[in-house]
Amino acid sequence: MNATTALRNGWQKVFGAGARSARPAPGDTSHGTILYLEDISVSFDGFKALNALTLYIDAGELRCIIGPNGAGKTTMMDVITGKTRPDAGSAWFGQTTDLLTLSEPQIAEAGIGRKFQKPTVFEQHTVMENLELAVAGTKTIWTTLGSPLDRRQHERIEEVLETIRLQDRRSMRAGMLSHGQKQWLEIGMLLAQEPRLLLVDEPVAGMTPQEVERTAELLLSLAGKHSVMVVEHDMDFVRSIARRVTVLHEGHVLAEGTIDEVQNDPRVVEVYLGE
């Protein structure tokens, strides 16, 4: 049994092997891969925001994506979550879910959660209500109209509150939270959805050093149980959490490897110094 199969088995133990789980297809060798992006291109009025981007994420991995402004990091997340449709390429979640055929809520249901670049919690709702909105479960209007949350969902919310350390803020309006707390709440909303893949866009921008540290802990604790893709500019932060780093530049992958490998890569140095 090689490492990736072990990972996948562990994965299935946690989440069950359903139709949704990454299941090896005949002739497929990348058993532990949860996200496949291949040759994705997106252009806005002729400008190529993504240019034949190819990227794979393994189950349980914590991947950092770095790259200069405008490299296409956010656009990539838009493609994965169904907000932007690419002009070309393919995007698969596991071996069975073709992301390009699904709508945003369907993608969320399939198990991809997203934290946006600027924090977007529901400011008028309390912390608790934000998590209630996010928590996994049936989300049709007939269910939400007729029945309150069940016990399992309540337990899940309590767990998440503990993870993001906002137990004593549960009844506070989310709009009153500090910037860092909002970011955590948003990560908590992601967790409440029980996603298999978390996309996290610039989580530590504007945070105090303590908050940054706490966020690093939080993300590290998630890896393994979830696959996490983090976009971040703060290199110290990236260094503190990253195992594998991908550098995007002008819409495609410039380099990939450990943080030291990419930081010493002459092409990467050139891109960053050229700014």
Binding site: T81, K83, E104, P105, A108, E109, G113, R114, F116, T120, F122, E123, Q124, H125, E129, E132, L133, A134, K139, T140, I141, T144, M189, Q193
Partner: peptide
Amino acid sequence: RVVQAIRDAESRTRFIGYR
């Protein structure tokens, strides 16, 4: 609460899985 969430941040509501 979903309806009010739609009022305040429509696309966010979509991303957490509501139609």
